[in-house]
Protein backbone atom coordinates (compact mmCIF):
# COMPACT_ATOMS: atom_id res chain seq x y z
CA UNK A 1 0.00 0.00 0.00
CA UNK A 2 2.99 2.30 -0.37
CA UNK A 3 2.79 4.45 -3.43
CA UNK A 4 5.31 3.08 -5.87
CA UNK A 5 6.15 6.42 -7.48
CA UNK A 6 7.40 8.34 -4.46
CA UNK A 7 8.54 5.47 -2.28
CA UNK A 8 6.88 7.17 0.68
CA UNK A 9 4.33 5.49 2.91
CA UNK A 10 0.78 6.80 2.85
CA UNK A 11 0.87 9.79 5.22
CA UNK A 12 -1.94 8.49 7.48
CA UNK A 13 -0.15 5.28 8.48
CA UNK A 14 2.10 7.13 10.89
CA UNK A 15 -0.96 8.39 12.74
CA UNK A 16 -2.49 4.94 13.09
CA UNK A 17 -0.74 4.47 16.41
CA UNK A 18 -2.84 7.29 17.85
CA UNK A 19 -5.97 5.63 16.52
CA UNK A 20 -4.78 2.42 18.13
CA UNK A 21 -4.41 4.11 21.51
CA UNK A 22 -7.88 5.56 21.06
CA UNK A 23 -9.29 2.10 20.33
CA UNK A 24 -7.52 0.56 23.30
CA UNK A 25 -8.78 3.33 25.56
CA UNK A 26 -12.33 2.99 24.25
CA UNK A 27 -12.37 -0.79 24.75
CA UNK A 28 -11.00 -0.42 28.27
CA UNK A 29 -13.45 2.35 29.11
CA UNK A 30 -16.31 0.24 27.74
CA UNK A 31 -15.30 -2.62 30.00
CA UNK A 32 -15.55 -0.24 32.93
CA UNK A 33 -18.78 1.35 31.72
CA UNK A 34 -20.76 -1.84 31.03
CA UNK A 35 -20.74 -3.11 34.64
CA UNK A 36 -21.66 0.37 35.84
CA UNK A 37 -24.55 0.47 33.38
CA UNK A 38 -25.62 -2.95 34.60
CA UNK A 39 -25.68 -1.70 38.16
CA UNK A 40 -27.80 1.24 37.00
CA UNK A 41 -30.09 -1.17 35.14
CA UNK A 42 -30.72 -3.18 38.28
CA UNK A 43 -31.57 0.02 40.19
CA UNK A 44 -34.01 0.97 37.43
CA UNK A 45 -35.57 -2.49 37.33
CA UNK A 46 -36.09 -2.41 41.08
CA UNK A 47 -37.54 1.16 41.05
CA UNK A 48 -35.04 1.71 43.82
CA UNK A 49 -34.08 5.38 43.39
CA UNK A 50 -35.66 6.55 46.62
CA UNK A 51 -34.02 3.75 48.56
CA UNK A 52 -30.50 4.51 47.35
CA UNK A 53 -27.81 6.16 49.41
CA UNK A 54 -26.84 9.69 48.31
CA UNK A 55 -23.66 8.56 46.50
CA UNK A 56 -25.61 5.78 44.82
CA UNK A 57 -28.15 8.37 43.71
CA UNK A 58 -25.36 10.46 42.21
CA UNK A 59 -24.16 7.33 40.41
CA UNK A 60 -27.72 6.70 39.21
CA UNK A 61 -28.03 10.26 37.90
CA UNK A 62 -24.70 10.04 36.07
CA UNK A 63 -25.59 6.78 34.39
CA UNK A 64 -29.03 8.10 33.53
CA UNK A 65 -27.48 11.15 31.88
CA UNK A 66 -25.06 8.92 29.95
CA UNK A 67 -27.62 6.43 28.71
CA UNK A 68 -30.77 8.53 28.36
CA UNK A 69 -29.98 9.74 24.81
CA UNK A 70 -29.74 6.15 23.60
CA UNK A 71 -32.46 4.34 25.49
CA UNK A 72 -36.18 4.50 26.07
CA UNK A 73 -36.35 1.77 28.67
CA UNK A 74 -32.89 1.47 30.27
CA UNK A 75 -33.68 -1.77 32.10
CA UNK A 76 -34.35 -3.45 28.78
CA UNK A 77 -32.52 -1.47 26.10
CA UNK A 78 -29.16 -1.54 27.83
CA UNK A 79 -29.09 -5.32 27.37
CA UNK A 80 -28.13 -4.69 23.74
CA UNK A 81 -24.42 -4.40 24.54
CA UNK A 82 -23.14 -6.83 27.13
CA UNK A 83 -20.04 -8.80 27.90
CA UNK A 84 -16.30 -8.52 27.62
CA UNK A 85 -13.73 -9.27 24.95
CA UNK A 86 -13.83 -12.88 26.15
CA UNK A 87 -17.43 -13.23 25.05
CA UNK A 88 -19.78 -10.43 24.14
CA UNK A 89 -23.25 -9.78 22.88
CA UNK A 90 -23.45 -6.77 20.57
CA UNK A 91 -26.96 -5.96 19.37
CA UNK A 92 -27.76 -9.66 19.09
CA UNK A 93 -24.43 -10.56 17.50
CA UNK A 94 -22.55 -12.95 19.75
CA UNK A 95 -18.77 -12.72 19.55
CA UNK A 96 -16.24 -14.81 21.42
CA UNK A 97 -12.52 -15.04 21.72
CA UNK A 98 -11.14 -17.93 19.60
CA UNK A 99 -9.35 -19.18 22.71
CA UNK A 100 -12.74 -19.42 24.48
CA UNK A 101 -14.08 -21.58 21.68
CA UNK A 102 -10.97 -23.78 21.67
CA UNK A 103 -10.80 -24.00 25.45
CA UNK A 104 -14.44 -24.96 25.74
CA UNK A 105 -14.11 -27.59 23.01
CA UNK A 106 -11.12 -29.03 24.89
CA UNK A 107 -12.82 -28.97 28.30
CA UNK A 108 -16.07 -30.56 27.12
CA UNK A 109 -14.49 -32.92 24.57
CA UNK A 110 -17.21 -31.76 22.18
CA UNK A 111 -17.62 -29.30 19.37
CA UNK A 112 -20.65 -27.19 20.13
CA UNK A 113 -21.25 -25.43 16.84
CA UNK A 114 -23.40 -22.47 17.94
CA UNK A 115 -20.62 -21.40 20.27
CA UNK A 116 -17.78 -22.10 17.85
CA UNK A 117 -19.54 -19.88 15.31
CA UNK A 118 -19.36 -16.93 17.71
CA UNK A 119 -15.58 -17.04 17.25
CA UNK A 120 -15.85 -17.06 13.45
CA UNK A 121 -15.67 -13.30 12.87
CA UNK A 122 -12.60 -12.80 15.12
CA UNK A 123 -10.90 -15.75 13.42
CA UNK A 124 -11.58 -14.39 9.93
CA UNK A 125 -10.33 -10.93 10.95
CA UNK A 126 -7.19 -12.50 12.39
CA UNK A 127 -6.58 -14.49 9.21
CA UNK A 128 -6.59 -11.26 7.20
CA UNK A 129 -5.18 -8.70 9.66
CA UNK A 130 -2.99 -10.91 11.85
CA UNK A 131 -2.70 -10.64 15.59
CA UNK A 132 -4.55 -7.28 15.69
CA UNK A 133 -6.52 -8.27 18.77
CA UNK A 134 -3.32 -8.12 20.81
CA UNK A 135 -2.36 -4.65 19.68
CA UNK A 136 -5.65 -2.94 19.03
CA UNK A 137 -8.38 -4.41 21.23
CA UNK A 138 -7.02 -6.42 24.16
CA UNK A 139 -7.90 -4.58 27.39
CA UNK A 140 -4.83 -6.08 29.04
CA UNK A 141 -2.62 -4.55 26.32
CA UNK A 142 -3.87 -1.13 27.42
CA UNK A 143 -2.56 -1.78 30.92
CA UNK A 144 0.59 -3.56 29.74
CA UNK A 145 1.62 -0.73 27.41
CA UNK A 146 1.06 1.81 30.17
CA UNK A 147 3.17 -0.49 32.32
CA UNK A 148 5.91 -0.35 29.69
CA UNK A 149 5.75 3.45 29.73
CA UNK A 150 5.92 3.34 33.52
CA UNK A 151 9.06 1.22 33.33
CA UNK A 152 10.58 3.80 30.96
CA UNK A 153 9.96 6.49 33.60
CA UNK A 154 11.49 4.26 36.24
CA UNK A 155 14.58 3.83 34.08
CA UNK A 156 14.83 7.59 33.66
CA UNK A 157 14.83 7.84 37.43
CA UNK A 158 17.77 5.46 37.43
CA UNK A 159 15.93 2.35 38.57
CA UNK A 160 16.54 -0.93 36.83
CA UNK A 161 13.63 -2.69 35.13
CA UNK A 162 13.56 -6.12 33.59
CA UNK A 163 15.12 -6.56 30.17
CA UNK A 164 15.50 -10.32 30.05
CA UNK A 165 14.62 -12.22 26.92
CA UNK A 166 13.23 -15.72 26.71
CA UNK A 167 12.25 -18.05 23.92
CA UNK A 168 9.10 -16.74 22.26
CA UNK A 169 8.02 -20.31 21.52
CA UNK A 170 7.19 -20.78 25.21
CA UNK A 171 3.73 -19.34 24.61
CA UNK A 172 2.90 -22.00 22.03
CA UNK A 173 3.78 -24.60 24.63
CA UNK A 174 1.62 -22.67 27.12
CA UNK A 175 -1.28 -22.84 24.66
CA UNK A 176 -0.84 -26.59 24.17
CA UNK A 177 -0.41 -27.33 27.86
CA UNK A 178 -3.33 -25.07 28.76
CA UNK A 179 -5.64 -26.88 26.35
CA UNK A 180 -4.42 -30.29 27.49
CA UNK A 181 -4.95 -29.39 31.14
CA UNK A 182 -8.40 -28.00 30.31
CA UNK A 183 -9.25 -31.27 28.59
CA UNK A 184 -7.93 -33.30 31.53
CA UNK A 185 -9.65 -31.22 34.21
CA UNK A 186 -12.93 -30.80 32.34
CA UNK A 187 -12.89 -27.06 33.04
CA UNK A 188 -11.87 -24.12 30.88
CA UNK A 189 -8.63 -23.49 32.78
CA UNK A 190 -7.11 -21.26 30.07
CA UNK A 191 -9.74 -18.64 30.99
CA UNK A 192 -8.06 -18.24 34.36
CA UNK A 193 -4.64 -17.31 32.96
CA UNK A 194 -5.67 -15.23 29.96
CA UNK A 195 -5.22 -11.51 30.79
CA UNK A 196 -7.95 -9.98 28.56
CA UNK A 197 -10.50 -12.40 30.01
CA UNK A 198 -9.25 -11.58 33.50
CA UNK A 199 -9.40 -7.81 32.99
CA UNK A 200 -12.97 -7.88 31.69
CA UNK A 201 -14.09 -10.22 34.42
CA UNK A 202 -12.34 -8.38 37.24
CA UNK A 203 -13.73 -5.05 36.05
CA UNK A 204 -17.18 -6.58 36.35
CA UNK A 205 -16.46 -8.13 39.75
CA UNK A 206 -15.01 -4.88 41.08
CA UNK A 207 -17.82 -2.62 39.89
CA UNK A 208 -20.98 -4.73 39.97
CA UNK A 209 -20.14 -7.51 42.41
CA UNK A 210 -18.51 -5.51 45.11
CA UNK A 211 -14.90 -6.60 44.93
CA UNK A 212 -12.00 -7.85 42.86
CA UNK A 213 -11.79 -11.60 42.35
CA UNK A 214 -9.01 -14.15 42.35
CA UNK A 215 -7.80 -13.29 38.84
CA UNK A 216 -6.65 -9.83 39.88
CA UNK A 217 -3.78 -11.37 41.87
CA UNK A 218 -2.62 -13.23 38.78
CA UNK A 219 -2.91 -10.10 36.66
CA UNK A 220 -0.88 -8.03 39.09
CA UNK A 221 1.67 -10.85 38.98
CA UNK A 222 1.97 -10.54 35.21
CA UNK A 223 2.38 -6.76 35.55
CA UNK A 224 5.23 -7.27 38.01
CA UNK A 225 6.76 -9.88 35.71
CA UNK A 226 6.68 -7.34 32.87
CA UNK A 227 8.14 -4.64 35.06
CA UNK A 228 10.84 -6.59 36.87
CA UNK A 229 11.78 -9.50 34.61
CA UNK A 230 11.01 -8.99 30.96
CA UNK A 231 9.47 -6.01 29.21
CA UNK A 232 5.98 -7.02 28.02
CA UNK A 233 7.07 -10.49 29.05
CA UNK A 234 3.69 -12.14 29.50
CA UNK A 235 2.46 -11.25 26.01
CA UNK A 236 5.79 -12.08 24.41
CA UNK A 237 6.52 -15.37 26.08
CA UNK A 238 3.53 -16.80 27.94
CA UNK A 239 0.11 -15.68 26.71
CA UNK A 240 -1.80 -18.68 25.29
CA UNK A 241 -4.27 -16.46 23.47
CA UNK A 242 -1.45 -14.52 21.87
CA UNK A 243 -0.02 -17.83 20.68
CA UNK A 244 -3.34 -18.78 19.12
CA UNK A 245 -3.71 -15.39 17.41
CA UNK A 246 -0.12 -15.64 16.16
CA UNK A 247 -0.77 -19.04 14.61
CA UNK A 248 -3.97 -17.77 12.97
CA UNK A 249 -2.18 -14.66 11.70
CA UNK A 250 0.76 -16.49 10.18
CA UNK A 251 -0.45 -16.03 6.61
CA UNK A 252 -2.14 -12.68 7.15
CA UNK A 253 -2.66 -10.42 4.17
CA UNK A 254 -1.99 -7.04 5.77
CA UNK A 255 1.62 -6.66 6.84
CA UNK A 256 4.15 -4.03 7.73
CA UNK A 257 7.22 -3.87 5.52
CA UNK A 258 10.40 -1.88 5.57
CA UNK A 259 11.20 0.43 2.65
CA UNK A 260 14.91 -0.24 2.49
CA UNK A 261 15.66 2.83 0.36
CA UNK A 262 14.32 5.13 3.14
CA UNK A 263 15.84 3.28 6.09
CA UNK A 264 18.86 4.67 7.93
CA UNK A 265 19.36 1.71 10.31
CA UNK A 266 18.52 3.80 13.38
CA UNK A 267 16.83 0.76 15.00
CA UNK A 268 14.11 2.84 16.67
CA UNK A 269 11.60 0.34 15.30
CA UNK A 270 13.28 -2.51 17.12
CA UNK A 271 13.42 -0.47 20.31
CA UNK A 272 9.74 0.45 20.19
CA UNK A 273 8.46 -3.00 19.20
CA UNK A 274 6.49 -4.34 22.15
CA UNK A 275 6.75 -7.90 20.91
CA UNK A 276 10.55 -7.94 20.52
CA UNK A 277 10.37 -8.42 16.76
CA UNK A 278 13.06 -7.29 14.35
CA UNK A 279 11.57 -4.77 11.89
CA UNK A 280 15.06 -3.39 11.22
CA UNK A 281 16.02 -6.64 9.50
CA UNK A 282 12.57 -7.28 8.01
CA UNK A 283 11.88 -9.85 10.71
CA UNK A 284 8.16 -9.43 11.41
CA UNK A 285 6.94 -13.00 11.33
CA UNK A 286 3.64 -14.37 12.59
CA UNK A 287 3.76 -12.49 15.88
CA UNK A 288 3.54 -8.98 14.43
CA UNK A 289 0.24 -7.45 15.54
CA UNK A 290 0.20 -4.59 13.01
CA UNK A 291 0.18 -2.12 15.88
CA UNK A 292 1.94 0.46 13.69
CA UNK A 293 4.16 1.71 16.51
CA UNK A 294 7.23 1.18 14.30
CA UNK A 295 5.60 3.20 11.53
CA UNK A 296 4.89 6.03 13.95
CA UNK A 297 8.39 6.06 15.41
CA UNK A 298 10.31 5.82 12.13
CA UNK A 299 12.09 9.14 11.51
CA UNK A 300 12.72 8.50 7.80
CA UNK A 301 9.35 7.14 6.70
CA UNK A 302 10.76 3.72 5.99
CA UNK A 303 7.88 1.66 7.39
CA UNK A 304 4.61 1.10 5.60
CA UNK A 305 1.76 -1.32 5.17
CA UNK A 306 1.67 -3.78 2.34
CA UNK A 307 -0.64 -6.52 1.11
CA UNK A 308 1.36 -9.74 0.95
CA UNK A 309 0.91 -13.27 2.24
CA UNK A 310 4.53 -13.51 3.43
CA UNK A 311 7.20 -11.17 4.71
CA UNK A 312 9.70 -10.00 2.15
CA UNK A 313 13.12 -11.63 2.63
CA UNK A 314 15.75 -9.56 4.48
CA UNK A 315 16.76 -6.60 2.32
CA UNK A 316 20.07 -5.83 3.97
CA UNK A 317 21.15 -2.49 5.50
CA UNK A 318 19.05 0.63 4.88
CA UNK A 319 20.14 2.81 1.99
CA UNK A 320 20.47 5.90 4.19
CA UNK A 321 22.60 4.14 6.77
CA UNK A 322 26.37 4.16 7.25
CA UNK A 323 26.82 0.51 6.41
CA UNK A 324 25.08 0.68 3.07
CA UNK A 325 26.84 3.92 2.09
CA UNK A 326 30.22 2.41 2.95
CA UNK A 327 29.48 -0.63 0.82
CA UNK A 328 28.04 1.57 -1.87
CA UNK A 329 31.01 3.96 -2.01
CA UNK A 330 33.27 0.92 -2.15
CA UNK A 331 31.29 -0.32 -5.12
CA UNK A 332 31.58 3.10 -6.70
CA UNK A 333 35.34 3.13 -6.23
CA UNK A 334 35.69 -0.30 -7.77
CA UNK A 335 33.36 0.71 -10.56
CA UNK A 336 35.44 3.81 -11.26
CA UNK A 337 38.62 1.75 -11.22
CA UNK A 338 37.07 -0.62 -13.72
CA UNK A 339 36.03 2.27 -15.94
CA UNK A 340 39.48 3.81 -15.73
Amino acid sequence: MSSATTGKPFFLWRHLNKLRWLTLTLVFATLLLLPALHLYQTYVAAHAYDLLAPDEQRFYDTMEALSAPFTNDPAKDLDAVKGTTWSANLFGLKLSDPLAALGQAAAGHTLYLPFLLTALIPVLLTLVLGRVFCGWICPATFVYELNTNFSVWLRRLGLKTGTRRFDRRIKYAALGVGLLLSAAAGAVLVAGVYPPAIVGREAYYAIAQGGLGAGSVFFVGTLLFDLLVARRGFCRYVCPGGALYSLLGRFRLVRIRRLVENCNDCAKCNAVCEFALDPLHDGFGQECNNCAACIAVCPTEAMTFTLRLADIPPQGPGHLGHQYRKQHSGDNARHQQAVA
Binding site: G83, T84, W86, A88, S96, Q104, A107, G192, A197, G200
Partner: peptide, 9 residues
Protein backbone atom coordinates in the same frame (compact mmCIF):
# COMPACT_ATOMS: atom_id res chain seq x y z
CA UNK B 1 -18.16 -26.65 34.51
CA UNK B 2 -16.78 -27.99 31.23
CA UNK B 3 -19.23 -25.94 29.17
CA UNK B 4 -18.93 -22.66 31.11
CA UNK B 5 -16.20 -20.31 29.87
CA UNK B 6 -16.58 -17.89 32.78
CA UNK B 7 -17.54 -14.91 30.61
CA UNK B 8 -19.94 -13.51 33.21
CA UNK B 9 -22.67 -12.63 30.71
Amino acid sequence: VAACIGCGL
